[in-house]
Design a protein around this nucleic acid. Structure first.
Lengths: 129, 129
DNA sequence: GCTTGCCTTGACGTCGGCGGCAAGGTCTAG
DNA sequence: CTAGACCTTGCCGCCGACGTCAAGGCAAGC
């Protein structure tokens, strides 16, 4: 399979695949003319990468998952390194959610305040540049 | 007040204040020698900007709040434009929280799965590069 | 032969909110 | 007179995950 086909089947771009390769995540053999030749299994690798990226992981965090897949495991998250990253990400996620919840509460308060003072405040035009 | 003092009192840098100025958020008069001279009220403006940035707002989103302050209102969030941004940000925040919650659930499941299969999977060394 | 479509490497652009440096002008204290 | 602390504009660097050319090689159909 060449790069164009892999890109299409993985739902991404050739540029992205080359980018992953330069960062050591995806592997390719080369045919006589220099074209990249991908093994069927690379499709799973790329999909793993895309899924994790979509979940907010950085490429560096994804590395252990790919290594885990390459080590012959059916899923990339069963290895110790992956689990460590999972735990860390989970903690980050919790912190992020807490932060957003706090901001959300603050915004709701401000919104309520703004509506309550709608008539007494904002007497001049608020669109002043 | 010159730029160094404002920066210190607002807990930011001179570089940042100039940046805000080029983006039309902060205003300064000029003294004879070309130095920026800030009105006392700019301190409130800068603090409003910093607060909103900290809450995850983009500079473009903050503009109406600054305009609202300049229009003579005690707080920047009482004007219609600000309220519109607040509503939008609140919705974005909710969406973001939902997304993170979903990812979080997914991670927890994967973590549980990884732990459950700890012994039967990952037979080879998972740290293969 | 010529076009079309695939592929290659390399290098610069993007977005946002600044940091940091260069090369100079200004003001004040000693 | 000089040092040093402030200020000015301008421009490049940064992070991350790519997009977007540019300039060319390779393969296949007509």
């Amino acid at each position: 399979m060449r790069i164009g086909e892999l890109a299409e089947r993985a739902g991404t771009s050739t540029r992205t695949l080359r980018y992953y390769e330069t960062h050591g995540l995806v592997r390719a053999a080369r045919s006589a003319n220099g074209y990249r030749i991908y093994d069927e299994s690379e499709l799973h690798v790329v999909r793993e990468i895309r899924t994790l990226l979509g979940a907010g992981f950085a490429l560096a965090d994804i590395r252990p998952f790919v290594a885990c897949l390459r080590a012959g495991n059916a899923s990339g998250h069963v290895c110790p390194d992956s689990v460590a990253v999972l735990r860390r990400k989970l903690a980050e996620l919790d912190a992020g959610i807490d932060r957003l919840q706090a901001v959300r509460q603050e915004l709701r308060d401000q919104l309520a305040d703004a509506i309550a003072h709608r008539e007494e405040a904002c007497t001049r035009r608020c669109t002043a540049r």
